[in-house]
């Protein structure tokens, strides 16, 4: 269970302080699939970074099963990320001088897994293992980034618009795969999206606007084939 309590975060730009998160509280159950919805610039990515231990917060607390990660030292936080979380970044963040396969291995290596080809196949990148990120399309890079996160076998998966660069068909396939995996392994999945239809897949829909949560509702999840696009 992740308990987020009154999290605040601001960025300084010279003298101007820009408050991005204005006291957010939220509880996420283990194995739950939560979607974060909100307009561009509302602070979704920042929130994801803060609750996943990638970025320090100014005030508040983020507890995983009772342990406050905001009080951890850098070393403990790293160990925490290694053990528990994985991230699909909005901007992919692939290592440009490593092949697709090696990029996925970056995640797999942490759990001692050697063969990552099946994972690449699962995201539809069979035969592209030896390609470099610059030789892949945006959508293909995004799928490498998804494979890399899954390769780490996380307990909690943070996905920042994981289908943002994908067409309908590929997007649906990806979501089918991700959600099946999430249900099977009881992964806690926190996903950011702009797409109202995708939001209907989740157990819970949390809406944000300018640094605040404006609604938080249970949802009876639809299947990927039931939703529009």
């Amino acid at each position: 269970m992740i308990t987020v309590n009154l999290v605040e975060k601001s960025y300084r730009n010279g003298d101007v302080e820009h408050k991005v998160l204005k006291g957010i509280s939220l509880t996420i159950e283990t194995g739950e699939f939560v979607v974060l919805l909100g307009p561009s610039g509302s602070g979704k990515s920042t929130f994801l970074n803060c609750i996943s231990g990638l970025e320090r917060i100014d005030r508040g607390s983020v507890c995983y099963d009772g342990t406050d990660i905001t009080r951890m030292k850098e070393r403990e936080l790293t160990a925490f990320r290694r053990k528990k979380t994985a991230f699909v970044f909005q901007a992919y963040y692939l290592m440009p001088s490593l092949t697709a396969e090696m990029n996925v291995r970056m995640g797999a290596n942490l759990v001692g897994k050697k063969d990552v080809v099946p994972l690449l196949e699962a995201v539809g990148l069979k035969g592209k293992e030896k390609k470099y990120p610059s030789q892949l399309s945006g959508g293909e890079q995004q799928r490498v980034s998804i494979a890399r996160a899954i390769a780490k076998e996380p307990e909690v998966l943070f996905a920042d618009e994981p289908t943002g660069a994908l067409d309908e068909e590929t997007g649906r396939n990806m979501l089918r795969y991700l959600i099946a995996l999430q249900r099977e392994r009881k992964i806690t999945l926190v996903m950011v999206t702009h797409n109202e239809n995708i939001a209907c897949l989740a157990d819970r829909i949390v809406r944000m606007n300018s640094g605040r949560i404006i609604s938080d509702e249970k949802n009876s999840p639809k299947t990927v084939d039931e939703i529009g696009w």
Binding site: L54, E74, R75, T78, A79, F80, R81, R82, K83, T85, A86, F87, Y93, M95, M106, G107, L110, K152
Partner: peptide, 14 residues
């Protein structure tokens, strides 16, 4: 820099 920050995000130790 990019590589290292990414490794750290994934939980690789310093």
């Amino acid at each position: 820099k990019e590589y290292v920050s990414l490794l750290k995000a994934f939980g690789y130790s310093d």
